[in-house]
Write a protein that binds this DNA or RNA. Structure first.
Length: 506
RNA sequence: GGAGCGUUGGUCAAGGGGUUAAGACGCCUCCCUUUCACGGAGGAAUCACGGGUUCGAUUCCCGUACGCUCUACCA
């Protein structure tokens, strides 16, 4: 029987969760679920200097928002706990020691400062087969000297001893056969002076211990893949190594580089899944969620960045993505992020949401503007009317606030130039007529208005726009008489009166 | 500098030895709508370059160019 598929997403809790990160989780998740496997979330917090308070909780909340639930994690538990690498520290040392004993790794006593100096002195300096003979390590020092240094608790790191001129290759699920010459790769640190493993050792050990069968990560990891392959060979056997998939990068919309938070700030779109405030700098960054994106739209948009099912379908639920996702349709090349397209996905999802589903979001959007809803019975109708005009959830506030309160500003400059006594008289009479109107319904109001216009010998078109502006404040929104019906007789008349006053005062 | 990876309209992309080279976003025009949207109909715009192989290459092969990633006791 085939081994059960197990994948993992392994973020470092160092800050907000980036678009690229979410897409990596998503592909992991889709692949696992498509194949009936498990999705594990592992926290890679081996760099204590970069630990950020709250970042771990933030990651969990992002996943929850996206509808991606891990099968095993710090929060969900599981047979391979702990799922936080800092809590697995002792484990890694054991493997590092084994590598040293078997001659695949060695102790190095050079300090970070000494190496910095080297790097400054020698262009393109690398700690490698070519340079290690001139450095302070257990390969160059006499054995008793090494032992002495170790006894004296001299700080050391353990480095992998990269073989000289060996072909290291593997098959990537996306790229096919990939190969490197080992001479070109430096002797990466495996275990740091503080006893923590580096990423290189930790991934291999944990992927093995957690029985990971398929390992997804960003393309930026490709150059260090030979280190991981070699580690697998030395420690657990190549036949047990997971299949690798190096995902294409998400690129900035202009230029060609990797998309960064800075690009979002610069171009005016979010890059993180949710709001994030850095606790050290207090720097605030808005996320997709708070910008007004539906999780379904966010996920959908991300899935289509580097993958498609070969048909021209573009809108998929998470469930559909799970059903249709296969690796052979993942692209090799990076994809530029396009915010307009992202908004389009959101608009499509808003259209697909029912009024009932939308309601809590609309209430929240209005509440944010300080608008409370005394009469919820109208809300359904309002949402129906306004839905098509919203691409972000936050658009619901400006698109519907005038149903609940006077327009904050009335754009009389749009009325004024074409205003004359005839219109003034028309609206004055309109007020009187409306006051006597017995049935306050869309169709009746429409009919009444047009009859009056005819009587005054003014084209209705010339009067509709002023009326609209009186009621909503600007040139937007659903049909005027729909609005009038909903806000009611009293409000309609009051808003007309107010604007008339504004015009005569201006 | 080195290594690896990549390259179909402005963007996401389908396709793949012979096609009018799909579709979507964006842009433009028109229709619908006496607002703004939604919707509908059109339009402009693409196979990085050079060699092969072939009757025929955007597609296969080889180069070149360009871009990106990595080159930390960060992930």
């Amino acid at each position: 029987m085939e081994k059960k598929v197990r994948v993992r997403f392994a973020p470092s809790p160092t800050g907000g969760l980036h678009l690229g990160g979410v897409r990596t989780v998503l592909f992991n998740y889709l692949f696992a679920k498509h194949n009936g496997g498990d999705f594990i979330l592992r926290i890679e917090d081996t760099d204590q200097t970069r630990f950020v308070e709250g970042a771990e909780e933030y990651i969990f909340e992002c996943l929850k928002w996206c509808g991606i639930e891990p099968d095993e994690s710090v929060l969900h538990g599981g047979p391979h706990a702990p799922y936080r690498q800092s809590e697995r520290k002792a484990l890694y040392k054991e493997y590092a020691d084994r590598l040293v004993k078997e001659g695949y790794a060695y102790y190095a006593f050079d300090t970070a400062e000494e190496l910095d100096v080297k790097r400054k002195e020698i262009p393109n300096f690398q700690y490698s087969h070519a340079t290690r003979t001139g450095l302070k390590n257990s390969l160059t020092l006499p054995p008793d000297e090494t032992l002495k240094l170790l006894d004296e608790q001299t700080p050391y790191v353990i480095r992998i001893k990269m073989p000289d001129n060996e072909e290291v290759s593997f098959t990537d699920m996306i790229r096919g056969h990939v190969s490197f010459n080992s001479s070109l790769v430096d002797d990466k640190v495996l275990l740091k002076a503080d006893g923590m493993p580096t990423y290189h050792l930790a991934v291999v050990v944990d992927d093995h211990l957690m029985e990971i069968t398929h390992a997804f990560r960003g393309e930026e990891w490709l150059p260090s893949a030979p280190v991981h392959v070699l580690l697998w060979k030395y420690l657990f056997g190549l036949e047990n190594m997971p299949e690798w998939a190096h995902l294409p990068l998400i690129l900035k919309p202009d230029g060609n580089g990797k998309l960064s938070k800075r690009d979002g700030d610069r171009l005016g779109f979010p890059v993180f899944a949710m709001n994030w405030t850095d606790p050290r700098s207090n720097e605030f960054t808005q996320g997709f969620r708070e910008r007004g994106f539906l999780p379904e739209a966010f996920i959908n948009m991300l899935a289509l960045l580097g993958w498609n099912d070969g048909t021209d379908q573009e809108i998929y639920s998470l469930q559909e993505l799970v059903e249709k996702f296969t690796m052979d349709r993942v692209h090799k090349g990076g994809a530029k992020f396009n915010y307009d397209k992202a908004k389009w996905f959101n608009q499509e999802w808003i259209k697909r949401y029912s009024t009932e589903q939308l309601k809590p979001y609309v209430k929240a959007a209005l509440a944010e503007q300080g608008i409370s809803i005394p009469d919820e019975s109208k809300l359904d109708r309002i949402i129906e009317l306004v839905k098509d005009r919203c691409t972000l959830l936050s658009d619901f506030a400006p698109q519907s606030s005038f149903f609940f309160q006077h327009p904050a500003e009335v754009d009389i400059t749009a009325i004024k130039p074409k205003w004359d006594d005839k219109k003034q008289q028309f609206f004055a009479e309109l007020i009187r007529t409306l006051e006597l109107t017995p049935v306050w319904k869309h169709d009746d109001l429409d009919k009444e208005f047009k009859e009056m216009a005819a009587a005054h010998q003014i084209k209705p078109g010339e009067l509709m726009l002023p009326l609209r502006i009186m009621l909503v404040g600007g040139k937007f929104g659903p049909g005027v008489f729909d609005i009038a019906e909903i806000i009611g007789k009293e409000q309609t008349i009051e808003r007309i009166k107010n604007t008339l006053k504004l015009i005569s005062n201006a």
